[in-house]
Design a protein around this nucleic acid. Sequence first.
DNA 1: CGGAGTGTTAGTCG
DNA 2: CCGACTAACACTCC
Length: 286
Amino acid sequence: MPELPEVETIVRDLRPVLVGKKIVTFKVTKQRLLKNPLGQFKKFMIGATIFSVGRRAKLVLIGLSSGYTLLIHLKMTGQLVWRGSSGKIRLGGHPIVGVAAVPNRYTYITLGLAGGGKLYFNDVRTFGYFQLVKSELLAKHHLKFGPEPLTKNFTAAVLRQRLHGHPRVSIKAALLNQAVLAGLGNIYVDESLFAAGLKPSRRVGKLKSAEFIKLWSSIKQILSQAVRTRGTSFNNYRDGFGRKGTYWEKRWVYGRRGEPCRRCSRPISRTVLAGRGTHYCSNCQR
DNA sequence: CGGAGTGTTAGTCG
DNA sequence: CCGACTAACACTCC
């Protein structure tokens, strides 16, 4: 599930309940999900206090008083669920159909917090990971990512400059590349390209100046709308406040193969590009 | 039952 | 450099 808008939603929901809490236990039942030795996690997490919860690209960043930052990548199906001592739940990530309780059979990591709250990491496909990085090295670690599309620094000129190094790549593959631009995934690339009127297979080097500008504004518009609607949810996902992510209902092309285009009524096409299911309108997108 | 498809990313091969 | 493909894994849908 999680692309930029979903991770942003998760981070905003979890921040108020996690900041200021001290970690007292750290339990793992699938060590493959840890990118550092278990001993390091125990050493730098247990006893540490959480002082920040943030996001970079699709990573959740949890700043610790031990001088380390915990990086959590949810990949396809990762989910973070917080349960307070009163039993209140907040969660973010992929909904697991029919599995509402935590912990459950997909819970692989549990953080115990002072005061009785717990943070659970569930992951059906187990592609996600936890990684500890020294906070002072975080900036260096983040160099591999392109700019954040919802910040002021992200101008049309920046987008053009980032894409410039990949002239022969399809615009879809380029936008999926986190080194070009951080945070877009399969859904929002398809949606942004529809909004920009660009065929996903268009080569970056063939885009005109006006098309870069249209693409830039489309990316910003689609992503900010998705953040406002708390992201996209398949199935019956609900967040900890009982609300749904509703971008799914607003989508233009993703997952609409064969359905009439909302703009011109011709059927939405689906192909495979850059190894991903790709949805577009062959009439509205050129 | 079998095959296609699923929100990510790192890696290999040609 | 670049894209096609695969692998990591578990599950749903048709």
